[in-house]
């Protein structure tokens, strides 16, 4: 196996492990996958999944099941920043289609794709629980609400810089 979870990632996972009873290491699988994903290019290759399985003493398939179930895990390469645009009812009523259209044109990609420079991956999100600030999107760990094309421009500019 090529990939080894780094010391700092291990320490972070260990901090999560402290929260659960000693025989329930599996509980830390979601946080562990998140940590490993964030530190390794935003997506999880098989070797990452296997390393997490190993680290938590789980059957590999148990980790594959989890990693393929939750939508915040990516099992294919992604861009540096992941843009999740909410298109659910409230955002749709508030014009998320414009937002999606604008982003697709601006980045030159369709939903689900990654820009050529590897900077952005565009994804459709289900309700982000930001309906009061619709239309909304999430980039990496941050929410952006009441979006307009101008606002998106300044957000993207901030990220590129």
């Amino acid at each position: 196996m090529g990939f080894v979870i780094s010391q700092s990632e291990q320490e972070e996972i260990d901090r999560w492990l402290l929260k659960y009873p000693p025989h329930q290491k599996q509980s830390a699988v979601l946080p562990a996958l998140k940590i490993v994903q964030e530190k390794n290019g935003g997506w999880l290759a098989t070797e990452h999944l296997d390393a997490v399985a190993d680290y938590l003493s789980l059957p590999k398939i148990a980790v594959y099941e989890v990693a393929s179930f939750y939508s915040l895990f990516d099992l294919k390469p992604v861009g540096k920043h992941k843009i999740y645009v909410c298109t659910n009812v409230s955002c749709m009523l508030a014009g998320s289609e414009t937002i999606v259209g604008y982003l697709e044109r601006r980045l030159g990609i369709k939903m689900g794709e990654t820009t050529q420079d590897g900077c952005f991956t565009l994804k459709e999100a289900e309700c982000l629980a930001a309906c009061g600030g619709a239309p909304a999107m999430q980039i990496d760990n941050t929410y952006y609400e009441n979006l307009t094309p101008e606002k998106i421009e300044s957000i993207l500019a901030g990220l590129n810089g």
Partner: peptide, 11 residues
């Protein structure tokens, strides 16, 4: 886990 479309109070 607030995820029901239209709900954003717990956040």
């Amino acid at each position: 886990d607030e995820g029901e479309p239209g709900t954003f109070k717990d956040r």
